[in-house]
């Protein structure tokens, strides 16, 4: 083996190990949450719409972590509510500070919750279905058509593209003014 290749290989192996570690860190669904909250129960069994709790998703960059009073609205509908401390959730998805993801524009474009977050309605503990890397973001930004849903279906966990999606997706891109050339430049996500 050429010395340079060996060096590269060694570095690559070290880096790959680092990468593997990162992959775990970025999708660390096994970290204990402060309460054993089950999305499978709330979103799946009870069928509560994502936006009931993540009420900001259509209006803000952030989807929003529900306030405790949102929980209390169902759990203590009439009886006196106990005093509570704010919950400190462990994030399952965390982007680097220089990436400015905005929920509202993705929902407005017709990208559904499950496209990025997976079948949360089947997860007791939320685990990100993939590492949210720049390449993964760009795959969609280069051609979003397979993921564009009809209005009203963005929070539908059961939505699957129909056989017509190829045509419908392109139609929706045109109708919504989505131009991949404008989705792949740096300022689309970085500032």
């Amino acid at each position: 083996m050429h010395p340079r290749t060996a060096l590269l290989g060694g570095l690559g192996a070290a880096a790959a190990a680092g990468g593997a570690f990162l992959a775990v860190a970025a999708t660390n669904g096994e970290a204990p949450q402060p309460v054993p909250f089950s999305h499978a129960h709330h979103a799946g069994v009870l069928g509560i719409d994502c936006r009931h709790c993540h009420y900001l998703a259509e209006r803000s960059a952030w989807a929003g972590v529900p306030a405790m009073e949102t929980c209390m609205g169902c759990h203590y509908p009439v009886v006196a509510r106990p005093r509570v401390e704010p919950l400190r959730w462990r994030r399952t998805v965390a982007l680097q500070g220089f990436a400015y993801f905005d929920h509202s524009i993705h929902l407005a474009a017709g990208v559904g919750c499950s496209t990025c977050h997976g079948r949360v309605d089947r997860m007791d503990r939320v685990v990100s279905p993939q590492r949210m890397t720049m390449r993964w973001c760009l795959d969609c930004h280069r051609d979003p058509s397979p993921h564009l849903r009809p209005p009203g279906a963005v929070a539908d966990m059961d939505w699957v593209p129909s056989a017509e999606q190829d045509r419908l997706g392109r139609q929706r891109m045109r109708a919504r003014g989505i131009d991949p050339d404008r989705l792949t430049h740096c300022h689309a996500c970085h500032r």
Binding site: A15, A16, V65
Partner: peptide, 25 residues
């Protein structure tokens, strides 16, 4: 890989690991 290794070295200032909920909105 190099970027990943570099990122590991600079983990201190990574993205926030917690999301703290309001009690009352």
């Amino acid at each position: 890989g190099l970027a990943a290794a570099a990122t590991l070295g600079a983990c201190g200032d990574g993205p926030p690991r917690e999301a703290v909920a309001y009690v009352d909105q």
